[in-house]
Simulated assay, not measured.
Amino acid sequence: MFKFQTITTKETYNIRHRVLWPDEPIEYCMMTEDDTAHHFGGYIDQKLVCVASLFPDGEMKVRLRKFAILPHMQKKGLGSKMLKEIQTFLSETKISTLWCDAREAALPFYIKNGFLPYDDVFYKNGIPYQKAEYKVLPEAP
């Protein structure tokens, strides 16, 4: 059974490190902005298996960053479950837009979950990315 809940910044570090930067020291996954973010965890059988952080980006937007799922739990629908929970959480706030820098390889996953890509492809550390956004609140007519 999947359980979604708010977690602390510290609770994100192990999975961020193992999934996103395993070849770097754990400090590499710590961000100075972490204290301004809202952190979420996804649990299976009471074990934390995925994390995501939402960083404020202006008055009506938040940025999804450091979204990571343990390798042995990937491709099981947990990422979609996490995004649905985050989207539900945001629908109860005044946030209008959720956006992220999506790795090009993950773009189909984000599109499947209601995100729309925008802007040109850009590179970080040789990896292609594209910005993608999800409209939490529909545009006013």
Rank of each mutant, 00 (worst) to 15 (best):
M1L: 11
M1W: 12
M1T: 15
F2K: 11
F2M: 15
K3P: 01
F4P: 14
F4W: 13
F4E: 13
Q5N: 10
T6H: 14
T6I: 15
I7A: 09
I7G: 10
T8Q: 12
T9A: 15
T9E: 14
T9M: 14
K10C: 03
K10W: 05
K10G: 09
K10S: 13
E11D: 14
T12D: 10
T12Y: 07
N14K: 08
N14D: 10
I15Y: 07
R16H: 04
R16T: 10
R16I: 01
R16L: 05
R16Q: 02
R18I: 11
R18F: 10
V19M: 03
V19I: 10
L20D: 06
L20R: 09
W21T: 01
W21K: 11
D23M: 06
D23G: 12
D23F: 11
D23S: 12
E24M: 14
P25A: 01
I26R: 04
E27D: 10
Y28W: 05
C29L: 03
C29V: 15
M30V: 07
M30R: 14
M30P: 01
M31E: 13
M31W: 08
T32C: 07
T32M: 05
E33T: 13
E33S: 13
E33F: 11
D34S: 10
D34M: 07
D35G: 00
D35A: 02
D35W: 00
D35Y: 09
T36D: 12
T36V: 10
A37S: 11
A37P: 02
H38G: 00
H38T: 14
H39N: 06
G41Q: 03
G41S: 04
G42N: 07
G42C: 09
G42H: 02
G42E: 07
Y43C: 05
I44R: 10
I44F: 05
I44D: 00
D45I: 01
D45F: 05
D45K: 08
D45G: 08
K47Q: 15
K47D: 03
K47E: 13
L48W: 06
V49I: 15
V49D: 04
V51D: 03
V51W: 09
V51Y: 06
V51M: 07
S53D: 03
S53T: 11
L54T: 07
L54D: 03
F55H: 04
P56K: 00
P56M: 00
P56N: 01
D57M: 05
D57A: 12
G58C: 03
E59F: 04
E59V: 09
E59T: 07
E59K: 10
